[in-house]
């Protein structure tokens, strides 16, 4: 990606010069234009699942996730229309109503990306009834915990485990509303033979779904970890 031709685009009316192969999101970031993200994490592959980073491209009726959409010469991007703000707010409302999220008793309270985004967008209540289904909490590992009641299925942990640690312990089972992050072949964490207990899943989890027991949450989180390791690998 180092040697590629320059590409000129417009983001919110600002002219930005970037290069071929760059995504709209990283082009915007470098230009200092903020686009909210949730499932995206610097250093991991883009997933395009949370739809918070959707943007409009002038001339297209479609919306594009900026984390996966490559730039192309001359495109004009709108990052913050009323429609996008409305959709992002609704996205957060839906994520919050999918599981019994209760911030006040969550380990991530105060360090949660979902909580921060809800605050940012003024999601002051949920118009949609929540799902009251209890999900499993796996407490078998010596110090790592996964609480599926809090999981937002952003797949950051899966990607970190696969792409950074390289062991691919974590993956997803089932589909749709029944999707769930699993360990190995859907086993207890303690019986996992492939888990290296590296904690990267906990470091990248945006919410309180994966955490290290008896550790302050602020110490577990490391949103730079993937980027840091990649930079040391020289990739």
């Amino acid at each position: 990606m180092s040697v590629s031709s320059p590409v000129k685009i417009k983001i919110d009316g600002v002219e930005v010069t970037t290069y071929e192969g760059d995504t709209i999101l990283s082009a915007a970031k470098r230009a200092g234009i903020y686009i909210p993200t949730l499932c995206y994490l610097d250093g991991l592959s883009s997933y395009g699942g949370c739809r918070l980073c959707i943007v409009e491209v002038k001339g297209s009726p479609k919306l594009f996730p900026s984390c996966t959409t490559p730039v192309s010469n001359g495109i004009e991007i709108i990052t913050n229309s009323e429609k996008l703000r409305k959709f992002r707010k609704l996205t957060l409302e839906l994520i919050l109503s999918e599981k019994p999220h209760i911030c006040s008793i969550c380990v991530a309270n105060g360090h949660c990306e979902l909580q921060d985004l809800a605050k940012e967008f003024g999601v002051d209540h949920l118009r949609i009834e929540r799902e009251w289904t209890a999900h499993k909490i796996d407490l078998t590992h010596d110090f790592l915990v996964i609480d599926h009641n809090r999981c937002i299925l952003c797949a950051r942990c899966i990607r970190a485990c696969d792409e950074i640690e390289g062991v691919h312990v974590l993956d997803m089972k089932m589909r749709g509303k029944d999707s769930q992050v699993i360990i190995d072949m859907d086993e207890d964490w303690a019986s996992s033979r492939s888990c290296t207990s590296c904690r990267k899943c906990a470091m990248v989890c945006p919410v309180g779904a994966i955490y290290v027991r008896d550790k302050p949450f602020s110490e577990i989180k490391d949103k730079e970890i993937a980027k840091f390791i990649l930079s040391r690998r020289g990739s």
Partner: peptide, 14 residues
């Protein structure tokens, strides 16, 4: 939160 989302009062809901 209790009035707005139910908060921990709703813990029993599951």
């Amino acid at each position: 939160d209790c009035a707005v989302t139910g908060n921990m009062v709703t813990l029993r809901n599951v």
